[in-house]
Nucleic acid binder design. Structure first.
Length: 855
RNA sequence: GGGCGUGUGGUGGAAUGGUAGACACGGUAGACUCAAAAUCUACUCGGCGCAAGUCGGUGGAGGUUCAAAUCCUCUCACGCCUACCA
């Protein structure tokens, strides 16, 4: 009798064994090639979810595989431990954010360990620990001294629910990314990091990232948004109340200058602010725009004539009105534009609304000047210049060049490159974050905290109410003195955006306990990260900030590499069907069942019918969450890992299904039973190796190649299919009882290695059952056995096509020539039927694949 | 509005110019069993046919090619991201 496979016993046993032998603890070793693989670290929210299981299984498969391939693997884990939920829990449940966070970490660490991950836990970091955040306080001061961190008064996105400032990227459709609240504009003094200083490099270095998904690179490139154009000065025609004489505008379409019929400036433009002091109509308009409710309907273009006129820079005797318009952004370019309605959709909508002229200056090649006009659709494609004096007849590109040169020569314009990327606002009015190490002296001086005074620790005794700035309310903490002068001073009460911590943690993993932030020799050995794995939702923010940080720290002479992540992989979400009851509530998958008799889905309690919705990302709001722990308890980690890798390609969404998990569980047991049969069933002979054995070994070689390349290419769903196929194949051969026992013992040894990256526990158990030495985790990946193959005897299947349609499949020798195959085919009855009485025009032969006869 | 992606059986998906549907889930039939579970075996794209077989088939319409799910053009549907960036 074969003993039933018990994941409860087996998995814990091997997890302990790996730990005792410290097999995952990485040491710097210059003789070995390193491989640094890491997944995005989790926020300790309470317990792990299926997204984590997928993410960390993916990384673990890579880590274990690379280790077996002989690499010195670094596979660390940590906690993105600062953040709002801890503070919200503190307010709601009167818990200390620190206690709440650390107890969550404890729970989640246990869960992650139960997955059997090959993590070097000796490198574990938590970003809320002073030993971690003290280093970033130091970086900040160094960035400040270098002019890369600065404070400015600015309009910021204010989340009225979280009572905090959000970065532009954190505002989605006008709502807070976490709270979902409608965001309002508020003026505050904020700390910024000069990400814009690296715009050009952040953009151009994207080309170096050959192991990144194109999609992510495109998203970053669009976000940085480089545009090359011209900054043109328009002279302001004197108006008594205006101090400035010129209006600077930015354009990428200087070729359309003759089509300009107005100028527009942002409501925040200095000129607009000046005008509103004396013009109440303008003042009322601007305050209306600034009101939040005006921002909701962003489609409606609103403007007001400022009363000012400017001179057209090239068209003689032409004056343009200057409007104040809601669609012009102060943050981009110079906050002012010239409007060319014929060739810009926004300008056209605005012009149509306020009855401004529309002058077409570019027309399609085949049009006639007299009949060409613009109605509701601006013409934005290439064409021929018209109504443009000396530019007439030129193409858009030629016209650009001509007008550029003229305006620059005249001194009324200069070349300008603008980026959409803005500086990163890092101030947050929160408690549970890293304190910004700045003091404000009573004489008004702003000073960075002295290095020896670091870290600036968060105060322990704090009462969180959810109103206002917690550190600002803590008077004892806030009050300090200037160590140099002894003058009274107050501390900065804002904390860093939590993206600050996650922008450099991959560097800290290299020497997580070093006194200084980094140990140079460790950094230079391990960095860059060879493979980073995480969700696509971080395609812009986290990855861009990390890239910026790497470049900024490089320029502070910490190291000399340019990019943090050599390879990036973004995995899809884990989804589940949604269930909606007649009483209008979302039902958990556990509370419904499929009734085969009526062919419908029903509620377990009450037996009432349930509507089945489409598969969506597991979320509390849709109540379609499956708890990983209960799955691991019931089926074991190997089952969960196997299912995670099966079916869907990792970059796509994976639908979690009960039947799929059952199937994975059955497979684990099947492997176990088969292995036991090989080892203990006395039905195999001990005879010599025959040709059949060699053939079998050759086929196993084939599977090794396929599995290896599929792992390298991240095609894990195909690896799973390969292993299924391999198992079925070996089982069939076994049932034939024609092979030698040693052949199967060799096979099982190889097999245990091949399944190890995905399902390591059962792999160790099989290895142990065979009484092999050591553990699979320390073995080298299977090498191909060199076997003697008789080329003339090995056959391949060849498809015979008539006019491209497959009509017959024949077996021929691997090295068969065209002539040999032709001869074989012509005497084949089935094929002859199709050729008979027809003229053979052409025969195409692709060795080992097809022979196509064209008749 | 812009960008990216996807469309193949009942389902997840294989096949990146050469046998469409690997592998898995589900389903049907059978074996074992008092019975069930588990396990094993066979079948499972559609039409016609008792069968051998044959015709059709990768969202739709064209095209390139000896050969197209794959390459090109147009078109439809869905999904994701992004959005007044001048």
């Amino acid at each position: 009798m074969i003993e039933r496979y018990s994941h409860q016993k087996v998995e814990g046993f091997w997890q302990t064994k790996w730990k005792e032998n410290q097999v995952f603890e990485s040491k710097l070793d210059n003789k070995k090639n390193k491989y640094y693989v890491m997944e995005m670290f989790p926020y300790p929210s309470g317990k792990i979810h299926m997204g984590h299981v997928r993410n960390y299984t993916l990384g673990d498969v890579v880590a274990r595989y690379k280790k077996m391939k002989g690499f010195n693997v670094l596979h660390p884990m940590g906690w993105d431990a600062f953040g709002l939920p801890a503070e919200n829990a503190a307010i709601k449940e009167k818990k200390n954010p620190s206690d709440w966070t650390y107890s969550n970490i404890k729970v989640m660490k246990k869960q992650l360990k139960s997955m059997g991950l090959s993590i070097d836990w000796s490198r574990e970091i938590a970003t809320c620990h002073p030993d971690y955040y003290k280093h970033e306080q130091k970086f900040f001061i160094e960035l400040y001294k270098k002019g890369l961190a600065y404070k400015k008064e600015s309009l910021v996105n204010w989340d009225p629910v979280d009572q905090t400032v959000l970065a532009n990227e954190q505002v989605i459709d006008g709502k807070g990314w976490r709270s979902g609240a409608e965001i309002i504009q508020k003026k505050l003094s904020q700390w910024f990091l000069k990400t814009s200083a690296y715009s050009e490099e952040l953009l151009s270095d994207l080309t170096k990232l050959t192991n990144w998904p194109e999609k992510v690179k495109t998203m970053q490139s669009n976000w940085i948004g480089k545009s090359v154009g011209l900054e043109i000065d328009f002279s302001i025609l004197k108006s008594e109340n205006i101090s400035s004489q010129k209006l600077k505008i930015f354009t990428t379409r200087p070729d359309t200058i003759f089509g300009a019929t107005f100028c527009a400036i942002s409501p925040n433009h200095p000129l607009a602010i000046e005008i509103k002091k004396t013009n109440t109509e303008v003042k009322n308009f601007i305050s209306r725009i600034e009101k939040n409710d005006e921002k909701i309907n962003i489609d409606e273009k609103l403007g007001i004539d400022s009363g000012i006129k400017v001179k057209h820079p090239v068209k003689t005797n032409s004056e343009l009105p200057v409007y104040i318009a809601n669609f012009v952004l102060m943050e981009y370019g110079s906050g002012a534009i010239f409007g060319c309605p014929a060739h810009d959709q926004r300008d056209l909508e605005f012009a149509n609304k306020y009855k401004l002229d529309v002058i077409p200056v570019v027309m399609p090649k085949n049009e006639k000047v007299d009949s060409f006009s613009i109605k509701n659709q601006a013409f934005v494609e290439d064409g021929i210049l018209i109504n443009s004096e000396f530019l007439n007849g030129l193409s858009v590109e030629q016209a650009k060049k001509t007008i550029n040169e003229k305006l620059v020569k005249d001194g009324s314009a200069k070349y300008k490159t603008n980026f959409r990327l803005r500086d990163w606002g890092i101030s947050r009015q929160r408690y549970w974050g890293c304190p910004i190490p700045i003091i404000y002296r009573e004489d008004g001086k702003v000073l960075p905290v002295k290095e020896k005074e670091l870290p600036v620790l968060l105060p322990q005794n704090i009462s969180l109410t959810g109103k206002g700035n917690p550190l600002g309310q803590n008077k004892d903490w806030k009050k300090t003195i200037c160590p140099e002068t002894g003058m009274a001073a107050t501390r900065e009460t804002d904390t860093f955006d939590t993206f600050f911590e996650s922008s450099w943690y991959f560097l800290r993993y290299c020497s997580p306990r070093s006194k200084e932030a980094f140990e140079k020799k460790s950094l230079n050995y391990w960095m860059p990260v060879d493979q980073y794995i995480g969700g696509i939702e971080h395609a812009i923010l986290h990855l861009l900030y990390s890239r910026f940080f790497t470049k900024a720290l490089r320029d502070l002479n910490y190291f000399n590499f340019d990019e943090p992540f050599k390879g990036l992989f973004t995995q899809g979400m884990v989804t589940h069907k949604t269930y909606y009851s007649s009483s209008q509530e979302w039902l958990n998958p556990e509370d419904v069942y499929f009734d085969q008799k009526t062919n419908s889905t029903k509620k377990v309690v009450g037996d009432t019918p349930v509507e089945v919705g489409r598969s969506e990302k597991m979320s509390k709001s849709k109540n379609n969450v499956i708890d990983p722990s209960s799955i691991i308890n019931k089926y074991g980690a190997d089952t969960a890992r196997w299912f995670m890798m099966s079916d869907s390609p990792p970059e796509r969404d994976l639908e979690w299904t009960e039947t799929g998990v059952e199937g994975s569980y059955k497979f684990i047991n099947k492997i176990w039973n088969f292995s036991n049969k090989i080892l203990f069933e006395e039905s195999l002979n001990n005879s010599e190796m025959t040709e059949r054995d060699i053939n079998f070994k050759n086929n196993i070689n084939n599977y090794i190649v396929r599995i290896s390349t599929n792992i390298e290419k991240f095609h894990f769903n195909k690896v799973v299919a390969n292993i299924y196929e391999l198992t079925n194949y070996a089982q069939k051969e076994y049932e034939c009882k024609d092979l030698a026992k040693n052949t199967f013992l060799d096979f099982l040894k190889t097999y245990a290695k091949l399944i190890h990256p995905i399902i390591p526990h059962i792999s160790e158990e099989i290895w142990n059952l065979m009484k092999n030495e050591g553990m699979v985790v320390d073995q080298t990946w299977p090498i191909l056995e060199k076997l003697k193959i008789d080329e003339t005897k090995s056959k391949v299947k060849l498809a015979i096509q008539i006019n491209g349609k497959t009509r017959e499949i024949i077996e021929v020798g691997e090295a068969a020539t065209k002539k040999e195959v032709e001869e074989l085919v012509m005497i084949n009855k089935k094929i002859f039927k199709y050729i008979d009485g027809k003229e053979v025009k052409k025969i195409i032969y692709v060795p080992k694949k097809i022979l196509n006869i064209v008749v």
